[in-house]
Write a protein that binds this DNA or RNA. Structure first.
Lengths: 185, 185
DNA sequence: GTCTATATTTGGATAGAC
DNA sequence: GTCTATCCAAATATAGAC
């Protein structure tokens, strides 16, 4: 594996664990085993490396989610597969976490992968909701885009509530509540 | 206003804006106008001061939310009042933001106010959902505690999606979607 | 491409005078 | 209670040798 690769993967891990403000170049060098000179040879600095890591994480996450959303079954079943998939809930969302970090939000190069991931997710969920409405699985009153955004928000908020409680349980409750409301029509 | 008071309020602001990792003693001293000696006279250090600030923020937030939830109207109307209240969406939630900060989650003194706030909120919402079910406003199938947690998650996740998009719109969409699902039965 | 040396600023605090 | 001096490590690089 190349040096850049090692740096990017290590930075992905550290950003997920500690956020942008909490991730130092020194920590990246130590965990990756790459020296300071090498790091600054391959990347211009912390934010350059973080931008590469976040783009990579965004791609990884979209690919993973697409597996659930494009699986077999009805629209409801695919949304359910996404919401109930195995997660290490207390780690939180590698992308959603970055939205709380003011430095990430302030730097377009860092915010863009975060924004694009959620734009994609909300659009993809909206397609499924519309499909489920057409199939008579869901109530047809609600706007599919609004319901899709609510579903994405339940996941992100579920992580917040779970970390606050230091327990995965609130995440699971939130998801079950959302599924119950989707079904109840 | 006392010196401790000034320190606490300034720390509340900075934690909201920059998170725990991003808030330094020096920044607190500069914004509050309180000197270093004074700060360390009144508080033993950063985490002590942050604990006081977070407890205060938790109280403030609970009082504010309780206004909406205990207002006039049906259960649905009070939940709606809470979800639609005027917010500076892009600032995010002063309490929910802290849940993403690993140092906060790791220190019980810092995590406790965050945990308690959401425990209280979820319980309070669950009462309202149960009340609405009893009154025939909501479908009676879903578990009130699960629906309540989903509602709290929509708010927290709405902030995440809004900050990611650098626009309040996803928050508003998520909330409208949640209200539509609550109504659709 | 990688290494070591060096540099500046901040983080986070302690000590002791006033 | 507040101020100034001082301290040491970490953050975030740049420079130049190899």
């Amino acid at each position: 594996m190349g040096t850049s690769e090692r740096l990017i993967e290590t930075t992905q891990e550290l950003l997920w664990e500690r956020g942008y403000a909490g991730t130092s170049p020194k920590a990246i060098q130590q965990r990756s085993g790459v020296g300071q000179g090498s790091m600054y040879h391959h990347f211009s600095g912390k934010s350059d490396l973080a931008a590469a890591a976040l783009s990579r994480s965004a791609e990884d996450l979209k690919a993973l989610v697409e597996q659930q959303l494009s699986g077999p079954g009805t629209a409801y079943q695919r949304i359910e597969a996404y919401l109930l998939r195995d997660r290490d809930v207390l780690r939180g969302c590698r992308i959603g976490r970055m939205a709380q970090d003011s430095e990430v939000i302030a730097e377009p190069q860092l915010r863009r992968p975060v924004e694009e991931t959620f734009d994609w997710l909300r659009g993809r969920l909206a397609e499924l909701v519309a499909e489920g409405q057409a199939a008579g699985e869901f109530a047809t009153g609600p706007d599919p885009a609004e319901v899709a955004t609510a579903i994405a928000a339940v996941v992100q908020g579920g992580y917040v509530l779970a970390r606050a409680a230091d327990s995965p349980e609130p995440f699971r409750q939130a998801v079950r509540g959302a599924l119950a409301l989707l079904r109840a029509h």
